[in-house]
């Protein structure tokens, strides 16, 4: 906290997202979700509950809209015309997008949410004071607040033995959200370090990606050019960076898009367009 430091490095401290930010990322984890093969089966959501100590809130609280599903599968009916939903339903697995320029970060009064060197949008539960500004400022609405002490009745004995000791159980008054299974990332990093190698693609896989029966979810490091994820990003011509993607649309197979790209939040999740056979 010395003046010298500020004065010497002032230009460095003034770098914003357009100049690449001041972060030097070790990894930038990202995800691809192929909506064409996502069946909306909820497997990912369940895996997330199992992995991340998510509380079951019960009917009354669910009714109030206080459910805690970090990974939720949204279902839309978009068949306003016609008698039947002939095109089927539209499913969308929605989780924290770990935006590169996350809107939740600058508004937190206590800096409980910030960017990690892994390119993750972190939520530090024990720092959170529960102002809930971050959730208000999240266009995706994927931050969940502990409106009650859910732990009190979510895990009656011996259900609590299932709780994952690698991450904490959240008490009332803190915000929580998808962490890209930080505990798995941490374990994988430790393992790689123990084996004295760099983390390879596939070393870490999130609970949702691991469970997904169709393999619609692919998780990996977008900074590693050989990872499946970055290949998919490359293939679908979507790149990291907060600005609208310019695509060379000669090839329609390029299905990738990011939700709310126009808000310049740089989401880490690439969705691949759903395909429907309109010929039939």
């Amino acid at each position: 906290m010395s003046f010298k430091n500020i004065l010497e490095n002032f230009s460095y401290y003034r770098r914003d997202a357009e100049d690449g930010g001041h972060h030097e990322y070790d990894h930038r984890f990202g995800m691809t979700i192929d909506l064409d093969i996502c069946t909306g089966c909820n497997s990912c959501s369940t895996a997330c509950y199992a992995e991340n100590n998510l509380a079951v809130v019960g009917k009354e609280r669910f009714e109030k809209g206080q459910a805690m599903h970090w990974m939720r599968v949204e279902r839309y009916w978009d068949n306003i015309e016609g008698d039947y939903a002939e095109e089927g339903a539209k499913f969308l697995p929605m989780l924290c997008q770990n935006c590169g320029a996350a809107t939740c970060e600058p508004v937190c009064p206590v800096a409980a949410t910030y960017h990690t060197p892994d390119g993750l949008n972190a939520q530090v539960y024990n720092r959170c004071i529960g102002s809930r500004y971050c959730s208000n400022n999240c266009p995706f609405r994927v931050r969940y607040f502990n409106f009650w002490s859910y732990y009190e009745d979510s895990w009656p004995e011996p259900l609590n033995m299932q709780l994952n000791p690698d991450l904490s159980v959240r008490d009332k008054g803190v915000m929580e959200k998808c962490t890209f299974c930080i505990q798995r990332i941490r374990t994988a990093k430790d393992k790689a370090q123990r084996e004295e190698r760099v983390m390879a693609d596939g070393d870490v896989v999130t609970a949702c990606a691991q469970a997904c029966p169709t393999g619609a979810i692919v998780f990996g490091d977008t900074m590693d050019p050989d990872s499946r994820v970055s290949k998919l990003w490359e293939k679908h011509q979507v790149h990291r960076g907060p600005f609208l993607q310019k695509k060379d649309k000669t090839n329609e197979e390029i299905r990738g898009y990011r939700i709310f790209d126009e808000l310049n939040v740089d989401p880490s999740i690439l969705y691949l367009e759903r395909v429907r056979d309109t010929e039939v």
């Binding site: 909506l35 839309y76 978009d78 329609e252 367009e273 395909v275 056979d277 309109t278 010929e279």
Partner: peptide, 19 residues
């Protein structure tokens, strides 16, 4: 679960035809 039953034109789930 879910407020709106439709996307109200938001294009969350973008759909292209198979042809």
């Amino acid at each position: 679960l879910g407020g709106s039953e439709t996307q109200v034109g938001r294009k969350f789930v973008k759909t292209i035809s198979v042809d």
